[in-house]
Design a binder for these strands. Structure first.
Lengths: 178, 178
DNA sequence: GTGTGCATGTAAGGAGTTACATGATTGC
DNA sequence: GCAATCATGTAACTCCTTACATGCACAC
């Protein structure tokens, strides 16, 4: 079976306690989304493949007419996850940001629009930082109290990077001010 | 015509002096690649669409049996570019990084593998930072001397962010050391 | 004469998204 | 009773990449 990073997101979320596909997606939206986005349409087919490959078990529990499932990692699943975590092979980081692209080309703008663009970018970074500090870090710190430490490290790295970028753009902004 | 960010990359690169599709790709690989990756297979069809829409002109110049083209922005093309630079609408930033995903799930690893993972990440960030400082910033500063200032701002923002992240991971590394 | 870089393009495939479709349960 | 949330899934589509195909020019 071909293992893409999305597969390890599934295994990881189940490892963190998510029991349904829906719960995986919700947890991923509060955590891995920021460095590996995953849509619901990926979740169910991927879970199917992972079960077929024996990396997880799905137990059916009928609720009304609708079938619901309880997922759990198998031993093989846990091993494969750890093996991947250890392996150094990596696709290149990819980053796409229209804001930075605009900044790169901003020489074509008149000075007041340049300033407005930088202000918009800073505001966006500020909001992302605030969201991270207020919503994401506390959740990760709750996990930390339970002994799972790395989600909080990653959340703080993101929060601190946003803060640093905000300062940087603030400085650029003041340089551009008339 | 539907204008995606890749279209503005083309317009921007021509605006910076790239005259052929090949030159656009080369310049993009040294600049916009880091916040809007573009493959060669996108370049030629996109240039075709942009010409059809009247945003650029292509002048054919026959070299041997092979046709070569000289691209230039039309007035409409310049206007559309500036209009987009001014517009606030933006798709969400997207970032995909297997390294950070591994870090997020690193609680499953034994301590020595956790440390090895953080070291690998720091090394990767260090190399990306060095490449940015040594290869990208100097090119952008050459443009700056010609009066085009923002590419250098973006290059420095990237260089400084890498340096900050490297420090951050260094600190985490020393916390994990036995 | 041969490899490297310049240069233009297409075809097939893969990864991921949006939109759609269905139904149960819980809180107001 | 109705909205929001929980929950599972598929189909169509878009975007982008990899691989392929071709040929000129120049340096060694």
């Amino acid at each position: 079976m071909k293992m893409r990073p999305a597969a390890y997101v599934m295994l990881g979320m189940i490892g963190l306690g998510a029991r349904s596909g829906y719960a995986i997606k919700k947890l991923a939206d509060l955590s891995t989304r920021f460095f590996w986005p995953t849509s619901l349409a990926q979740v169910y087919p991927e879970l199917g493949r992972l079960e077929e490959a024996g990396l997880l078990t799905r137990k059916s529990k009928l609720e009304g007419k609708r079938e619901r499932f309880d997922y759990e990692l198998t031993e093989v699943g846990e091993e494969k996850l750890v093996e991947w975590l250890r392996s150094p092979k990596e696709a290149e980081t990819q980053f796409r940001d229209e804001g930075v692209l605009r900044l790169f080309l901003a020489d074509r703008l008149p000075p007041d629009d340049q300033l407005a663009l930088v202000r918009r970018l800073r505001k966006r970074v500020h909001e992302a930082g605030a969201h991270t500090r207020e919503e994401i870090v506390p959740l990760a710190e709750a996990l930390e109290r339970g002994g799972t430490r790395f989600p909080a490290q990653v959340a703080r790295l993101r929060a601190d990077t946003y803060a640093y970028t905000e300062q940087w753009l603030e400085r650029l902004e003041s340089e551009l001010e008339p």
